[in-house]
C-alpha cells in the first residue's frame, strides 16, 4: 500500500510577540526573525498514516511539501518519524500562494510521483487557517474527499474512516485514492522520533522537484492569479490605561466605578 502525506511548514505559532511583524506589501507575516515549524495538523496526518502502516504492514509512506528551502527540516523530521520517502516541491515564488494554487502544484507533483492508495493532509494550517488545500487537491486529482478524519482502518473495498463532527463522530467507507484531511485527537499525537532515526534521516535523500520539472509556468503563479486574496493585514493595536478611582469611602468608590463602567460601555 502506498500512502502520501502532504505537510506544510509554517511560522511558529508560538513566535514571541516582539519577533512578529507583517510585510504590508505582500500582505503576509514577515519571516525574518521567525522560527519555522511543521504545521501541527500535518503532523497529526503523518502520525495517522504511520499508525495505518503499523496496522497493515507492507506499506510505504511518502511525504511531500510545497515550500521553501527551510522546509527540508520538516521533511527530515518526517523521515525521522519513519516516513519512507520525502519530496520537496520547491517554492521560489515571491509571494505565498493561496490554497487553490498550492493544491494545483501539489496535484501535479503527486501525479508525477505515481498513484497512491490514500492521500493525507492536515485539516488546516496554523498560519492562515483556511482549511481548503485538501478539498482543492481532491478536486484537482478528481478523487473523493473527506475532511476532519481522525481514525482510519483498511477494509476490503478501501478504508473505513472516522470523522469528527461538532456533535460526535461519523463513520464512512471511502474508496482507495481518496483525499482525507486529518484533525487532531488523543491518539494521533505525533510520535517522538528515536535518536537513531533522527541520525538516519540526515542520510536519506530528499527528492527535489521544481516548477520546471512539473511543467508549471512560474509567471502564471502570481498574486493576481490567486483566487483568494487578503484585503488588509495588520496587527491589532491594543491600548491600556490605568486610572485610580477616588472617593471618600467604599460606597462612594463603588458608585464612581459603576459610573465609569457605564460611561465606557456607552462608547463601545
Amino acid at each position: 500500500m502506498k500512502l502520501l502525506v502532504c505537510i506544510k511548514q509554517i511560522l511558529d505559532p508560538e513566535i514571541p510577540v516582539r519577533d512578529f511583524s507583517i510585510d504590508r506589501e505582500k500582505l503576509e507575516a514577515d519571516s525574518a526573525n521567525a522560527n519555522q515549524v511543521t504545521n501541527i495538523f500535518c503532523e497529526n496526518a503523518l502520525e495517522t498514516a504511520l499508525q495505518l502502516r503499523d496496522s497493515v504492514g507492507e506499506s510505504s509512506i511518502t511525504v511531500i511539501c510545497f515550500g521553501r528551502e527551510s522546509a527540508e527540516d520538516s521533511l527530515r523530521k518526517a523521515l525521522a518519524m519513519k516516513a519512507d520517502e520525502a519530496c520537496l516541491v520547491m517554492n521560489d515564488l515571491n509571494h505565498t500562494p493561496d490554497s487553490a494554487t498550492t493544491a494545483h502544484v501539489l496535484a501535479s507533483a503527486i501525479e508525477s510521483l505515481g498513484s497512491f492508495d490514500l492521500i493525507f493532509t492536515g485539516r488546516e494550517s496554523g498560519d492562515w487557517g483556511n482549511g481548503q488545500t485538501g478539498a482543492y487537491l481532491a478536486e484537482e486529482l478528481k478523487v473523493p474527499y473527506l475532511p476532519f478524519v481522525d481514525d482510519i482502518k483498511q477494509t476490503d473495498k478501501g478504508f473505513e474512516v472516522r470523522r469528527q463532527t461538532e456533535s460526535g463522530w461519523e463513520r464512512y467507507g471511502i474508496p482507495a485514492s481518496s483525499v482525507v484531511t486529518i484533525t487532531n485527537s488523543d491518539h494521533n499525537l505525533p510520535r517522538i522520533p528515536k535518536t537513531r532515526d533522527i541520525m538516519m534521516s540526515h542520510r536519506k535523500t530528499i527528492t527535489r522537484v521544481s516548477f520546471e520539472d512539473l511543467k508549471i509556468r512560474k509567471d502564471e503563479l502570481n498574486p493576481q492569479s490567486d483566487s483568494v486574496r487578503p484585503v488588509k493585514l495588520f496587527v491589532p493595536e491594543k491600548e491600556s490605561a490605568c486610572e485610580f478611582i477616588e472617593g471618600e469611602n467604599l460606597n462612594a468608590k463603588i458608585d464612581q466605578l459603576a459610573d465609569k463602567i457605564m460611561e465606557i460601555r456607552s462608547t463601545l
Binding site: 511558529d12 508560538e14 514571541p16 510577540v17 516582539r18 526573525n33 522560527n35 517522538i192
Partner: peptide, 21 residues
C-alpha cells in the same frame, strides 16, 4: 520541553517572550 528546544532553541514551550524583551 525537548520539542521546543529542538524547534525554538529553548525549553519554555508557550513563552511569548523573545530573548530581547
Amino acid at each position: 520541553a525537548l520539542a521546543s528546544i529542538e524547534s525554538r532553541g529553548h525549553p519554555f514551550s508557550g513563552s511569548r517572550f523573545s530573548r530581547l524583551d
